[in-house]
C-alpha cells in the first residue's frame, strides 16, 4: 500500500485549505458561549418566577424579616473576588507558570467553597427561622433560585478541582490554557448571574 503517496496527497490538501475553523474561534469556545447563552434563559426564567411571586406570599416569614444583607454582602464579595483569582490562574497558565496557576486555581475553588458554605449556613438559619421550601411562595421561589445558582457554583468548584488534579499529574500545561479559559468563562458567568440575583432578590425592597 502506498502510504507515502497518500500521505503526500492529503498533506497537499491541507496546505490548500489552511483554515482551522470558519470563524477563527475554536469549536469548544463557541460551544461554551452557546451553552452560556442557553443558561441565560434558564436563570432568566427562574428570576422571572421569583419576581412574579414577589410580595404574593400569603403567610410569613417575609423577605425583610429574614434577610441578613451584611452577611450576604460579604459572601457576595468573596464570590466576586474568586473571579479575580480565576483571571490570575488563566494569566499564569498562559505564561507557563504552572506553580502559580495551581495556587490561583485552588484559591478560586476555596473562595467558591466559602461562598457555597456561606449559602448552606444562610439556608440553615432561614430554616431555623421558619422558612422552608413548603412555607410560602417566597420560600419556594427563593430556595429554588438560589439553590440552582449554588448548584452551578458547586459544579464550577468540581471542575476547578479537576483542573488542579490534572495539573498535579502534569497534564495541564500552557498548551491547555484554553481549557482553563473555558472553565473561567463558566465561572465568570456564574458570578455575573449572582450579581443579578443579589440585586434583584436581596437589595431591591419588595
Amino acid at each position: 500500500m502506498s502510504a507515502l503517496a497518500t500521505s503526500a496527497a492529503t498533506t497537499r490538501t491541507h496546505e490548500a485549505t489552511p483554515h482551522a475553523t470558519s470563524t477563527g474561534l475554536s469549536n469548544v469556545k463557541l460551544a461554551v458561549w452557546a451553552f452560556l447563552a442557553s443558561e441565560c434563559l434558564l436563570f432568566g426564567a427562574l428570576i422571572s418566577t421569583y419576581l412574579l411571586y414577589r410580595g404574593r406570599s400569603i403567610v410569613g416569614p417575609y423577605p425583610h424579616q429574614i434577610y441578613d444583607i451584611p452577611y450576604t454582602s460579604v459572601s457576595s464579595f468573596v464570590l466576586l473576588m474568586s473571579s479575580l483569582t480565576m483571571v490570575l490562574a488563566l494569566a499564569a497558565v498562559q505564561r507557563g507558570d504552572t506553580r502559580r496557576m495551581r495556587v490561583w486555581l485552588l484559591a478560586t475553588a476555596l473562595l467558591g467553597m466559602t461562598f457555597v458554605g456561606g449559602q448552606a449556613y444562610e439556608f440553615t438559619s432561614f430554616v431555623r427561622q421558619g422558612l422552608t421550601l413548603h412555607t410560602n411562595l417566597f420560600g419556594s421561589s427563593f430556595f429554588v433560585l438560589t439553590g440552582f445558582h449554588g448548584a452551578h457554583v458547586t459544579i464550577g468548584i468540581v471542575m476547578l478541582l479537576s483542573l488542579f488534579g490534572l495539573s498535579l499529574r502534569g497534564k495541564l500545561g500552557p498548551e491547555n490554557a484554553e481549557t482553563v479559559e473555558l472553565i473561567g468563562l463558566y465561572w465568570h458567568f456564574v458570578d455575573v448571574v449572582w450579581i443579578v440575583i443579589f440585586t434583584v432578590v436581596y437589595l431591591i425592597p419588595s
Binding site: 447563552a37 442557553s38 434563559l41 426564567a45 406570599s57 400569603i58 403567610v59 421550601l133 429554588v144
Partner: peptide, 30 residues
C-alpha cells in the same frame, strides 16, 4: 438553544411541587 431552558425551568418547578412540596402551582398558597 433558547427554548429548552424555558421548558426546563417549568418542568423543574412542577417537579419540585410534586416531589418536594413547593408552592409554585399551589393556588391556595397564592
Amino acid at each position: 438553544l433558547f427554548a429548552m431552558p424555558v421548558i426546563a425551568v417549568a418542568l423543574v418547578l412542577l417537579t419540585f411541587d410534586r416531589l418536594f412540596g413547593t408552592n409554585f402551582f399551589n393556588v391556595s398558597a397564592g
